[in-house]
Computed example of a mutant assay.
Amino acid sequence: MAISPGVYFLCLLNLFSFGAIFSSATLFTLENGCNFTVWPGSLAGKGPSIGGGGFALAPGSSSQFQAPAGWSGLFWGRTGCKFDNAGKCVTGNCGGGLKCSGGGEPPVSLVEFTLNGSDNKDFYNVSPVDGYNLGLAVKAVGGTGTCQYAGCVKDLNIDCPAELQMLDSGSVISCKSACAAFNKQEYCCTGDHATPQSCSPTKYSQLFKNACPTAYSYPCDNATSTMTCMGSDYAITFCPTGSST
C-alpha cells in the first residue's frame, strides 16, 4: 500500500497553502540522463495535464512543457514500457498506456510541485516515500529565493535491503517503501502514527535519507526536503549524475 494521502496532506498543509497568484507560466524541462528510454508520467492535482500525461524520452534527450500559474502535480519516470494490447511498464506503470490515467504504481520515485503557493512561492520536492525506481533531481533555473537543488542521485536499487527489493529476472528493478513491504502503522503513518507528531522516521526511512539527503524519506520529512523558489523554471532530470551543478 502507499503512504496515507491524508497524513501526507497534513504534513504539507502549512507549506502548500495557496496565496495570491502573480506569476506567469512556468517552464518544465524534463531531461533523460539514463542510458535507456524513460517514459515520464505526469498527474495534475490542479490545472491541466502536462505532456498529455505521458510520453517517451530517449537517452540524452529532453522535452519542455509550460504550466500555468497555480499548477500543482507530480512527475515520475517509467521504465521497460510496452504499449501493446497487454502492455504496461515494468516500473511506474499508470494504467498500461502511454498517457497516464492515474498516478504511478509504487515503488516509484516522484517529484512534486505546487506553483505559486503561500507567499507566491513555488514548493517542490523529490520523494521516495512510496518507494524508488529511478534517480531523480530538480534544479531551479532563474528564480529568486533559496531555490535549492532537490534530488536523489545515488542509485538506491544497489543498496536496497533484501526485504524491500522488487526483482525482475533476478535483478533489482525498484526498492519498496517499508509501508508497502510490511503494512505496519509505524511505517505507513496510519492508526496511532497518523499525525505529524507521531509520524516519525524509521530505520528504513533513514537508509533513504542517508542516500538522498535532499529528498523526502517519510511523509513528515519537511524540514530538509521541501524546497521553495519564486519566479523560476525547473529542470527535472532522470538518472542525474551530479548535485547542484
Rank of each mutant, 00 (worst) to 15 (best):
F16G: 02
V172R: 03
A162R: 12
S72C: 11
T26F: 11
L115G: 03
T202M: 09
M166A: 10
V138D: 07
S217H: 05
P107H: 07
Y216F: 12
V38F: 07
G19V: 15
Y216G: 02
V153G: 01
L27P: 10
K82P: 12
G102K: 10
S232W: 00
G231V: 10
A56M: 15
L74I: 00
A194K: 01
K82L: 15
G60Y: 08
T202V: 05
G170K: 06
I173P: 13
G97A: 12
S62A: 04
L115E: 04
K154M: 08
A20H: 12
Q197A: 15
G52W: 14
C34K: 02
G242D: 14
Q66K: 08
G87N: 10
Q206M: 14
V38S: 05
G41R: 03
S169A: 14
G70C: 12
I3N: 02
S198R: 03
T91N: 06
K46T: 10
V129L: 10
A223H: 03
S62Q: 12
C229N: 06
K82N: 14
E31V: 08
C189G: 07
T202F: 06
E186I: 01
S200Y: 06
N125A: 11
A2T: 13
E31C: 04
G92R: 02
C179G: 01
A86D: 08
P213Q: 01
T226Y: 05
M230R: 11
L74M: 04
I21R: 15
M1S: 13
C94M: 09
Y234H: 05
T224E: 10
A162G: 09
A67C: 10
L57K: 01
L57C: 02
T224C: 08
G135W: 15
A211F: 07
T114P: 03
A44I: 02
G47I: 12
K176F: 00
V111L: 14
K154C: 06
A215W: 00
G96S: 00
S217A: 15
Y218Q: 11
P40Y: 04
T37R: 15
N85F: 14
C160S: 05
C160N: 06
P48Q: 11
K139S: 12
S174E: 01
G70E: 00
G151K: 02
L30S: 04
I21A: 10
P128N: 13
S49C: 02
T37S: 13
P5Y: 14
C175P: 03
M166P: 00
